Amino acid sequence: MSSWCQYEALKYISFPSQVLAKACKIIPVMIMGKVVSKQKYEYYDYITAALISVGMTFFMMSSSTSKGT
């Protein structure tokens, strides 16, 4: 039932928003891994996650504002 609801909800969100959300998903996963599982990540893992999220955000912002001339 939850899969069906998930796919129905995705019909109302644009594809670029879905891609951005999936790219930024790594940050909460790392935070929960640290808090719940006491998992340790290297500093470059945090940097990589942040750069991926920031890069995808900038990419999505630039592609949405540049409508054809």
Rank of each mutant, 00 (worst) to 15 (best):
A50R: 02
S14G: 10
I31V: 12
S37V: 12
M32S: 07
V19F: 02
M56L: 08
S53F: 02
M30E: 01
I26L: 11
E8T: 10
I31R: 07
G55M: 01
E8C: 10
P16C: 10
M32R: 07
A23F: 01
K40Y: 04
Y43I: 14
C5H: 11
I31C: 08
K67H: 08
K11Y: 03
I47R: 10
Q18V: 11
E42Y: 03
C5Q: 10
A49Y: 01
C24S: 04
Y43H: 14
K38C: 06
K38D: 04
G68I: 12
S62M: 12
I47Y: 10
P16K: 08
A23W: 00
P28V: 00
S62L: 13
S66P: 03
A21P: 05
V19C: 07
F59S: 01
V35I: 15
F59G: 00
K67F: 04
S53H: 02
E8V: 10
A50Q: 02
F58M: 01
D45E: 15
P16E: 11
Y41P: 00
S17A: 11
S3F: 10
K25M: 13
I27P: 09
S64T: 15
S3W: 09
S14V: 00
M32Q: 09
S17T: 06
Q6S: 05
L10D: 09
F15R: 14
K11L: 06
S62Q: 13
M60L: 13
S62N: 15
V36L: 04
Q6N: 08
F58N: 00
K22Y: 09
I47L: 12
V19Y: 01
T48F: 05
S62C: 14
A9P: 11
T69R: 10
Y7A: 07
K38P: 01
Y44H: 15
Q6T: 12
F15Q: 14
V36W: 01
K40P: 01
Y7D: 10
T65G: 11
A9H: 12
C24G: 07
